[in-house]
Every structure is written in C-alpha cells, then in structure tokens.
Design a protein around this nucleic acid. Structure first.
Lengths: 205, 205
DNA sequence: ATCTTTCCCACCTAGGTGTGAACC
DNA sequence: ATGGTTCACACCTAGGTGGGAAAG
C-alpha cells in the first residue's frame, strides 16, 4: 500500500464571521420530514492537495455531547437526559465527488445542497439527525476516486468548532430566528427594517 | 494497453416522440449570449456498461451539412452559402462525470443543464454554436475516470438523427414556436388553450 | 398543562420562456 | 429595404423561508 496520507492540506472556513455570530447565541438548525438546508451553509476553501490525485469529500455529523437538550427562555439551552440512538445516515458525500485536487482547489467547496431531516429513510443528499441534540459537522477529505472505499483510505478530518449546532423542529431562541431572517435571502419577507412592505398574515375563514 | 472498448453498451433516447414531432418540422434551437437551454433536452437511458468501471459521458455538437441555412416562410429551410468557421468549444462534459457504470445506468442521464451560446468565450457548461447552421448532437461514452484523456481512450459514439437542429437567434418557423410553447413548462404563459388567463402585453410610454 | 412536531401558507429568491421593439 | 441579433419585460416554474394554527 503506497497511499500518501492527505494530511498536509489546508482547509479554510468561508463566512466565518457569520458562523461566529450564530455560535455566540448557540446555533439552531431546523430539521423537517422533507429536509431543510443549513443556514449558514458550510463552505470551505481547500489548498495544498495533490492536483492530479482524486479525492472524495464528505461531511459527517457527529454528536458532541452525549445528551439531549432542553431550552428555557430564562436559562437558554441545558442538558436534559441521555442521548437518544443516532441514525447511521449522518454522512453526506459531496455531490461533485470524486474530483481531482486541482478541481476542489479551484473554487470554494460548498455544502449548500445538504438537507437535514428527521425522517428515518430519506433520499440521498439528506442527513438524519435527532431533534434537541447537538452536532458538530466534520469535513472529511479522502484520497480515492471510489466513494465506496472512503472508510479504508487515508483521510483528513477538519472540524470548525464554531459550526456546531442544535437540531430543532422549531426555533427556540428568538435571537437565532432574527439572525436567520436578517441574513438568509429566502427569509427576506420576514424582515422588519423597511425592506418588506407587507406583514405576514393568514387567511381566516 | 489493455483497455476494453465500451462498444457493447445500449443507449435509448427518452422523450423520443417529442423529438420526432419537432424533427418533422425541422427543429430550431435558440442561442443567446448568456446561454439558452435546449428544448427538448437530450435524455438517455444507458444499459450494459461495466458496473464497476468509471466512465465520462459528454455531448458533442457536430455540423452535419457544411453550409449556412436560410429560412423563407414559403419554402422553409434551404442551404444559403458556405459553412462558417466553427468554434472548438462544442463539447459538453456531463457534470456528473466521472462516475461508475452502475451509477450512469441507475437513472436517465440528462443533458438538461447544457446551454447553447454564440458568445466566443463562455463559462463552462456552455457550448458555442453558429446561428443558421445545422447540428447533430453526438453522445460519447468514454471508459476513463479522467476527463482530460477522453480523446485517447476507447469511446462509444451514439447519434440520434431525430435530435438534429438548426441554431437560431430567433425562431423562424412559427410551427416550431407553437410546439415549444405547448410543451415547455416555462413557456406556459404563452399558451392559448385557456390555461393562461392573461395575454402578453408590453408597457408603453 | 406543557413541550414538541407537523402542516399549510404568504412571501421571497432564482432563473427559464417567448415577445416585440430597437438595434445593427 | 432586408435579415439577423439583442434587450427589457411579463409571465411562468421550482423551490427555500419562518409564522402560526393544529395536532400529537
């Protein structure tokens, strides 16, 4: 076996300041049956790969503290009971895998299409999480052109602590909701700073 | 060199009856500076590949008759002068390349993201054509995991004559326009069969 | 009661259509 | 004049937001 471990490459987190703002408040990510994107999305710039070798890149959701959480408006998030069984479907293979080092380094690598879900058997591209549990995304770069052998080849793990989050089915901390609304273009309709002309309303019968 | 030629695989054109309807009228495809999708899009179902080998699949636009065309409402399309110089950027690598035979065969392979353009130096995913020239799409399956060597490995070419078309900057045959409007979901607003409630109009000053 | 999940909704982003006037 | 190209536009498809009621 003459594989060379890809342990000398460089991975830089994009939109880091936004992640930090969320992390200071304890980031929450919505999970739904049909799958919900992460916001912010994980995006990294990679350097120092072998330009001519093939790599598969994926994202793994790991549990960081082995407990279930609970939110109270007074005290925020706090542990509340033991960890529940985790689904094995917590790995997202970047859809452009496999590709050459040259390709991965030519532009930012985005995990914006990944979706979080609580459905037991979701379609590909979805990752199964448990609500009220805390996760730490881990980016894995495996030196292989075959996604099926990613567990058996040299790999590099990269973890950005500011990207950890608690999975929820509805936002708990309204400061988090506000930060999402103010920064996610798709939530523009909920902004209050004069950009949106109409307030939200429901049809009543 | 012990490559085995992929010459025994099977490629079937999807939405063939729609292609035939267009072809009977002489298909036209719009090209623009910013790039225009083809409609119908080329879609094929592939079988009999080696499930474990890697393949790159691409689409090549070849000129079929070496002349420029002209349209007249009375006589339709007719040759009108010699062929103009063709751009070498007439190859579209399917964005999921490279992938295993197993993957390519697991679902229809669609070239729906390909865009046709008349701009000299377009972004990747665009193919440069000359207006008023006739093209024949050619699907190429190359047995390699490296897109850079597709010219030097065994490859299989597949051509469906009913998919040939004339590139235009504006539709010439109004029967073609009608067929596009009736079948392309994005042109639904132009349909006349009661589905659309508003007629097209311009703001005038 | 309380906490968590689900569903439909108005409101957005993003971008694919042919039109018809203007331009060349 | 004529023929071909470009552009802004109304109108669509497709799908990502959190809100709030209802359900579990």
């Amino acid at each position: 076996c003459n594989y060379k471990a890809p342990n000398d490459c460089t991975v830089v987190l994009k939109n880091r300041s936004l992640w930090q703002k969320f992390n200071e408040l304890e980031t929450e990510m919505i999970i739904t049956k049909t799958g919900r994107r992460m916001f912010p999305a994980l995006q990294v710039q990679i350097a120092d790969l072998d330009p001519h070798a093939y790599y598969c890149i994926f994202l793994e959701m790991t549990t960081v503290s082995h407990c279930r959480y609970k939110y109270s408006s007074s005290g925020g998030w706090a542990p509340s009971g033991p960890e529940e069984a985790q689904s094995p479907q917590c790995v997202y293979l970047h859809p452009e895998s496999p590709a050459t080092g040259e390709y991965w380094m030519s532009q930012a690598v985005s995990f914006g299409r990944l979706k979080l879900t609580n459905t037991p058997a979701p379609p590909v591209g979805h990752v199964v999480l448990s609500s009220m549990h805390k996760y730490q995304p881990r980016i894995v770069i495996a030196k292989t052109s075959d996604p099926r052998v990613i567990d058996f080849v040299p790999r590099m793990n990269v973890v950005f602590p500011e990207t950890q989050f608690i999975a929820v089915t509805a936002y708990q901390n309204e400061e988090i909701t506000k930060l999402k609304i103010d920064n996610n273009p798709f939530a523009k309709g909920f902004r209050e700073n004069g950009q949106s002309k109409c307030k939200r309303k429901r049809v009543s019968e």
